[in-house]
Design a protein around this nucleic acid. Structure first.
Lengths: 161, 161
DNA sequence: CATTATTTTCAGTATATTCTGATAATAGTG
DNA sequence: CACTATTATCAGAATATACTGAAAATAATG
């Protein structure tokens, strides 16, 4: 993106749209994804509400709601500009890893559900118990591997600084 | 679950409902989750359409649609009963690991999106390129760790037989 | 303090999805 | 082949969600 980002060319709008689709696929609003996509490829990194509105053709209210959502999830951050009352938006460092982590929360939920079944659903047949134990064991396995992976990534990131 | 499963007691219906919520959270139909939850704790393991309809209070059409969906995703399987025209349903072995794997497909998509941006969105500023490279690197890292973890799990499962 | 650029809230519309009930199709059995 | 138990399809109701436009609130500046 070279000068002002009032209009997106074809390849960039396809990119933005694809990120939007992906967000939608994982249960988040389409517009939130389009904003993330745009923030990934725009220049400069920081963008105003108006920039995004004209580039993506969305309403100011949508921008406000989506930005607040993304901010609450720590995917973007807002910076004030001295001499202006605008608050620019940009993606946070490591936000994409955060997106992945957040999507994985359900694994923990899996384990909890299995434990709930084992403890609170008496009486259980031997077969049912075995099925729940299988859910529990696989969830724990995945949970451990994933948190180890994320810890390693963060360690790498710290060392790279 | 001891004898016939026409009605669920409190703790079991809470369990079923929670699995339903979880499915709904990850973008699948609520009823699909309730069916999976029931199949996890029922006795016997195999259940007929009618069993599930009366136990969960759902329409036959819903059962049909959801079962077909779950079958297409390899979460459940159907078995024919000799001497009857019923096809009973049960959870597949390892189905819960499959659910987890399926929910992780977006990681691959992440990498593909980053690559798409890098290759097809010329010209990109140096900053934008760096942001995309970061997405790509973290996606690849996660992708590799996850597939290694799943491979190890499958190896364990094979050895345990 | 008044002004106005900017953001947020809110009510309403459009759209998609889930689930049901009724009907049609399928396949095992006599 | 006829019968019927079982499953699948389809149209529509109910619900939820995303998005917009207008109005209200906020906050920086002169």
């Amino acid at each position: 993106m070279s000068e002002s980002d009032t209009v997106l060319d074809d390849s960039k709008s396809r990119f933005v749209e694809r990120v939007g689709q992906m967000f939608s696929n994982v249960g988040m609003p389409h517009l939130a994804g389009r904003i993330m996509g745009f923030l990934l490829i725009c220049d400069p990194q920081e963008q105003s509400s108006e920039d995004l509105q004209s580039a993506l053709g969305i309403a100011a209210s949508s921008f406000s709601a989506m930005t607040r959502l993304l901010e609450s999830m720590y995917y973007v951050e807002r910076v004030s500009v001295p001499g202006s009352r605008r608050r620019l938006v940009r993606v946070r460092r490591g936000s994409w890893m955060a997106v992945m982590k957040d999507r994985l929360r359900f694994v923990e939920e899996f384990r909890e559900i299995a434990e709930m079944g084992l403890h609170q659903c008496e009486p259980l047949s031997a077969g049912a118990r075995a099925r729940l134990e299988d859910v529990k064991a696989s969830s724990i396995f995945v949970e451990e591997r994933f948190s180890a992976a994320f810890a390693e990534w963060e360690k790498r990131a710290r060392n790279a600084e």
